[in-house]
Write a protein that binds this DNA or RNA. Structure first.
Length: 592
RNA sequence: GGGCUCGUGGCUUAGCUUGGAUAAAGCACCGGCCUUCUAAGCCGGGGAUCGCGGGUUCGAAUCCCGCCGAGUCCGCCA
């Protein structure tokens, strides 16, 4: 509802500017949300300059020309406007509050599915970790930013398909497959962790062999490949051309790892619609086609058999084919993106969630796609790295904290917290709440930080279930549920039609106004692709609810009208709290 | 060396795209509030040269330039 209010303010203010003959100063109304008003305009500042009057005089003058009668079609939602120094402050009226609650209740019954496709289809790729081990906290950031974005975009009215790009052709996978032949893959471990063990051990073997070779051979020939490295290379070549036996072995390792990754994602409430293997594009001939087309349409240069592509505005050329003729990640990614843009009936946008280390790569990708004349160019959401206090992460070196380990620990900590507070609940119930609170806290903790910020992950900090994070919001939701339960039990009459609203307390009004902002927050997060905005709003909403909760008794309110009105408010608060949690991918427990 | 990003109370962050009302929160610290719908809550307090230096402006955390510090990328890895 906030957007409607804002539109009205724009309309009324524009009219007043015209009437006061300030209209010449451009269209900019300089509206902002403010702690001093529901919406505030700074337009008097800029007008003051062009009209050579003090800003406060201009503000007064504008306010004098505002038409805010109750009967005016333009100002149904505005209570008043006041000039405070240079600022013009607008306030919403009771009708706005009433409408807000009405809208929330109406939408709750309606099916969102019908509305979903109205803004077009988006394919979003996120997580896409290499199949050489479990997800760690670096991937976690990608996954959570991606997943919240998916939820934000769906809520904002897009049809969204989520893809996981399976990098099955890299050297890492070759090493893992090579290792799986010589070393035992533990059967009793979570599959992705078992693969990581083998991958790490295989790397050590390769390393050891290289060192051994370096000792026996003179310094000059250290470059030479060891036997082990040769067999890894052999594996990769055979996989590329589709050697059946090698493909079978690759598949076994990658699928194994992926099943573990999928399980971890599931625990985090993250699901992908489609897993796309990059090798598909090599075998289908799509990569070869892309290369041919680049040679025709682009400016390429050969260095031996290697193919280098010149890209506009980027100093370095992009290598799109190795000198040994095998394909390169970049070429496969081009094929993948072209396939996405041509997929299905109509794809309108393609979004990739990448780490900051892919920034240059993503620019190159976009340029090359442009050369190919691909219809839908990708948009990139880049996020900065996560590191540990001890340094950067590395799967190969075994230097990481796995997502599984993290979830275990945080759920355990959450269980302690629940147990402290709710001895009345059964063990099973406490476990269930701990699971929801733990995962929620983890997701919130990651998503609340804006993507361009570098994170040094502190385990102790993450485990210290932050009081104003997800649990805080969940707690508010549980409180609302608790009131509604009690109301039902006592058969308290629910506010019938919110015809006349009996909400007069400041904290009641503030809560409604906060509720009204849900859509505009989602919209902002969607258009800017900045999911952390939702996290901030969720916390503020919970804060507003808690203030109301403390100020205004619901069930014991003396007047029937007040009781009913507050019950409606609690119901709406519960609805929006659960919506915002849903968008954050955090579960909304009815009690905790 | 060059590109991009970040640098806000002891710690973690919001605000920066669109310059304006006392720089906003959480954690930690100090002090209050459970005979009323869950105290994972509420109220109050101390604590900030917004990395440093310059510039633009009536006005700069926000825009521009330089410097310092951290991260990351820079042709055959993904």
């Amino acid at each position: 509802m906030f957007r409607e209010f804002k539109k009205e303010v724009e309309k009324v203010l524009t009219k007043a500017l015209k009437k006061a003959s300030y209209a010449a100063a451009g269209e900019e109304l300089e509206l902002e949300e403010s702690e001093h008003a529901d919406i505030s305009s700074r337009v008097a500042f800029s007008l003051a300059r062009t009209h050579k009057q003090p800003p406060s005089v201009v503000a007064e003058e504008i306010v004098r020309h505002l038409e805010l009668t109750e009967t005016s079609a333009d100002s149904k939602l505005i209570l008043k406007a006041v000039a405070v120094g240079p600022y013009i402050n607008f306030y919403a009226n009771d009708f706005f509050l009433q409408k807000t609650l009405q809208r929330i209740k109406d939408e709750e019954g309606a099916k969102p599915a019908a509305a979903e496709k109205r803004r077009g289809k988006i394919i979003i790729e996120h997580t896409s970790a290499n199949a050489d081990g479990p997800l760690h906290i670096g991937h976690l950031r990608n996954a959570i930013i991606g997943d919240v974005l998916v939820r934000v975009l769906k809520r904002a009215g897009f049809a969204v398909e989520t893809q996981y790009y399976v990098n099955d052709m890299g050297r890492q996978i070759g090493v893992a497959v090579w290792g799986a032949e010589r070393l035992e893959v533990a059967a009793d471990k979570k599959p992705d962790h078992a693969v990581a063990d083998v991958y790490i051990a295989a790397n050590k073997l390769l390393e050891a062999e290289k060192e051994a070779a370096a000792e026996t051979v003179e310094a000059e020939t250290v470059e030479a490949e060891t036997e082990a490295e040769k067999s890894v290379g052999e594996l990769m070549r055979k996989y590329e051309v589709g050697d059946e036996e090698v493909v079978r072995r690759y598949k076994a390792v990658v699928e194994k790892c992926l099943s573990g990754v999928r399980a971890s994602l599931e625990r985090l409430n993250i699901r992908h619609d489609l897993f796309v293997w990059e090798s598909e594009f090599v075998r289908s001939g799509a990569v070869a086609e892309v290369l041919e087309e680049l040679k025709r349409k682009g400016e390429v240069r050969f260095e031996g058999s290697a193919v280098l592509l010149k890209l506009e505005g980027i100093g370095k050329e992009l290598v799109v084919q190795r000198s040994d003729g095998t394909s390169l990640y970049t070429a496969r990614d081009l094929a993948y993106h072209r396939w996405k843009s041509e997929r299905g009936d109509r794809v309108d946008r393609i979004i990739d969630v990448f780490g900051k280390d892919h920034e240059l790569v993503s620019q190159q990708l976009a340029k090359a796609l442009e050369i190919l004349g691909v219809r839908v160019l990708p948009e990139f959401v880049l996020f900065e790295f996560v590191s540990l206090p001890s340094g950067s992460l590395s799967t190969r070196a075994g230097r990481y904290i796995s997502v599984d380990e993290l979830i275990e620990k945080i759920e355990e900590r959450a269980y302690e917290e629940v147990s402290k507070r709710r001895r009345d609940l059964s063990e099973g119930k406490r476990r269930e709440i701990a699971r929801r609170v733990g995962v929620g806290a983890l997701r919130y903790d990651i998503v609340k930080v804006s993507p361009e910020k570098h994170i040094v992950f502190d385990l102790e900090n993450a485990l210290d279930i932050e009081k104003k994070g997800a649990p805080f919001v969940q707690y508010s939701h549980a409180r609302a549920c608790s009131i509604l339960r009690a109301a039902t039990a006592a058969a308290t009459a629910r506010g019938s039609e919110a015809s006349r609203l009996w909400l007069h307390e400041e904290s009641e009004k503030e809560l409604v106004k906060k509720l009204a902002k849900f859509e505009s927050v989602v919209e902002a997060a969607a258009s800017e692709l900045r999911p952390h905005l939702v996290a901030k709003y969720a916390r503020e909403l919970a804060e507003s609810f808690n203030l109301f909760y403390k100020d205004c008794p619901v069930l014991t309110a003396e007047k029937v009208e007040v009781r009913e009105a507050r019950l409606v408010l609690v119901e709406c608060a519960k609805i929006v709290l659960s919506r915002v949690l849903e968008v954050l991918g955090v579960e909304a427990p009815e009690e905790m």
